[in-house]
Nucleic acid binder design. Structure first.
Lengths: 343, 343
DNA sequence: CTGAAAGCGCTAACAC
DNA sequence: GTGTTAGCGCTTTCAG
């Protein structure tokens, strides 16, 4: 039995307008009437029809989350799980529904705009992991749909939420320098991503403030993956740096594996700092010193910014940079307790 | 500029009905007219309004995916990533949108039914990882919303898609037996899950067909996690089985870690079979023999079944069991090549 | 404070 | 083949 406002009104002895007012918490309804209507709603289990509602209001109560095609990493990388978790939690608590768009191909991506966005199906969109020069991003920013990017995009004028990758690079460099290391290498992330670029630049600047420069021979880039880190460290190890900043925890794990095979012990022979603060970084052997980024919070903030954009409480571009934190564990500190600790 | 059917009709010199017919690929439209209308649509970039459409059609084109609260495992377990991937791909190709419901608390879960389901926001629902006696499941099956469960539920009358966990247990037992092992143990999954139960029962039956029984001393259950597998193997190792079936790859990894610490080598001292066929099982040292389950395909099938339910092409309960496959690698075969191979 | 009435943009009879 | 006409269930003026 499909109930409508009209039905509830009849049952409560009022008009549908009054019921509508009650449902939407509007003033100008007598308390008695309100109570009565609420009772009927409760008793009948009535719920207003979403389609009718959004047809007239122009709002769907749905926000979209786009994860582009090339991210096969979602299979392995806990980053996305944590991000989705944060975004989902924030959507729930802000009364939104979350629609997930995982694209397998560029075609599916192109389809998004006409089929979903223009149909008014979404109130707003969160886009993760855009590449440099992403055409999707371009088509989206052209529309009047509120959009928030997770991570710094390479174009201006768009709202985004990011962590302070640059500062993370600085912190890693300074930490290693202060530990007394002077032959400091970088296992970099792809500079085709803004995250990789920012971490690199921060690292270089951090070294600079210590009066040092990054020796190009001591820099090898990986692709964010474990095996990428492994391979990069194979090359890097030959130069025998006494400390290395790996621009992602996952790559750091690969690096640790390579070092183990080479019989190079961490941190005695080489100190390692990762980036991410993934749960696994606590359990690795040795426990990994890392730059912790607030992944779930990034997602949460993205939703909040998006909601502000949707409600008009803010207007694009809104930019928000979340702080990162150095977490010192065994991989840079031979005196730390067995499971590492925070300082 | 928001375009409507009326606008397109005016631009094309026809009525809105004709435009509607063209959009919905209905017959009874003159070819010339159809072409002209399509041209106008193309030129203007018109897209029909989703809300209006679903208000009148009663369909939203959205299916929901529910992952209950207690699954914090989503942080770590690649299973869910792969499942979501499969579900998302199938949704895309069947022209549906996917709405994701990750719940943090039981309250949010209870909220689902009134706020989302009764509002007619969804055409159907896929629910994963239900517990035994799940109240959510009960409330859902009471409604007339098409629902498909991923994994065997503990109640009847519901449609579900599952892998053949029982057969996986059988295959693991027979494989170990055929390798000549006679002291075969089980690192079980929680029997509070149907998957754990089915794998256990299959394993016992597999042993039985080989004329063997599972020694209760050789069975320790874990909780699906790496550390759970580690701890379980700590206990199990004392009994010195010469082969163990670990009911999930992740637990098997934990078991391998424990064995390594004990100096028990795999497969020489103990053969190990996992369950899942996760990507990481190929890279573990030694590469893990495992029962591979088609995770993404499970998701795909769930969507297809759901679509059948929605369209009326099928009626509940539909049950679909996907086959699993034994993948032999190093952990049960000391003669296998370094990185393991399939047989 | 409350009700009547006018749509939101679309689909689906029903006429022509 | 094509246009006309009712609604789908809701929000929102506008009267009272």
């Amino acid at each position: 039995m499909k109930l409508t406002l009209e039905d509830i009104g009849r049952l409560a002895g009022v008009s549908r307008s009054t019921v509508s007012r009650v449902i939407n918490n509007q003033p100008n309804v007598h308390d008695d009437v309100r109570a009565n209507v609420l009772e009927v709603i409760e008793r009948t289990g009535y719920a207003p029809n979403a389609a009718a509602r959004s047809l007239v209001s122009g709002r769907s109560g749905v926000i979209g989350l786009v994860i582009p095609s090339r991210v096969h990493a979602i299979f392995e990388d806990p980053y996305f799980s944590r991000l989705i978790q944060g975004i989902s939690a924030a959507s729930n608590s802000s009364g939104n529904m979350l629609s997930l768009f995982l694209f397998q191909s560029a075609e599916e991506e192109t389809d998004l705009y006409p089929r979903v966005v223009k149909a008014g199906f979404l109130d707003g969109l969160i886009v993760t992991a855009t590449r440099m020069g992403d055409p999707l991003l371009a088509s989206l920013t052209g529309s009047d749909l509120p959009v928030v990017i997770v991570g710094r995009p390479d174009t201006g004028g768009v709202s985004y939420v990011d962590v302070d990758n640059h500062d993370g690079g600085v912190k890693a460099a300074v930490h290693l320098y202060e530990l007394g290391h002077r032959k400091i290498g970088l296992l970099g992330a792809p500079v085709s991503t803004t995250a990789g670029l920012d971490r690199l630049n921060g690292f270089v600047q951090g070294l600079a403030t210590c009066g040092m420069a990054l020796d190009p021979k001591l820099r090898v880039d990986g692709d964010f993956s474990e095996s990428g880190g492994y391979e990069a460290m194979q090359k890097l190890a030959k130069q025998r740096p006494d400390a290395v900043f790996a621009a992602s925890d996952t790559m750091a794990f690969g690096a640790l594996r390579a070092l183990q095979e080479h019989g190079i012990s961490v941190p005695q022979d080489m100190a390692i700092v990762g980036f991410d603060g993934m749960p696994a970084s606590e359990k690795s052997i040795p426990a990994l010193t890392t730059i912790r980024q607030p992944v779930a919070e990034t997602g949460t903030r993205a939703v909040q910014v998006l909601n502000d954009l949707i409600s008009g409480a803010a207007s694009a571009p809104v930019v928000e940079i979340l702080p990162v934190e150095l977490v010192v564990r065994q991989s840079t500190d031979s005196t730390a307790p067995a499971l590492g600790g925070r300082r």
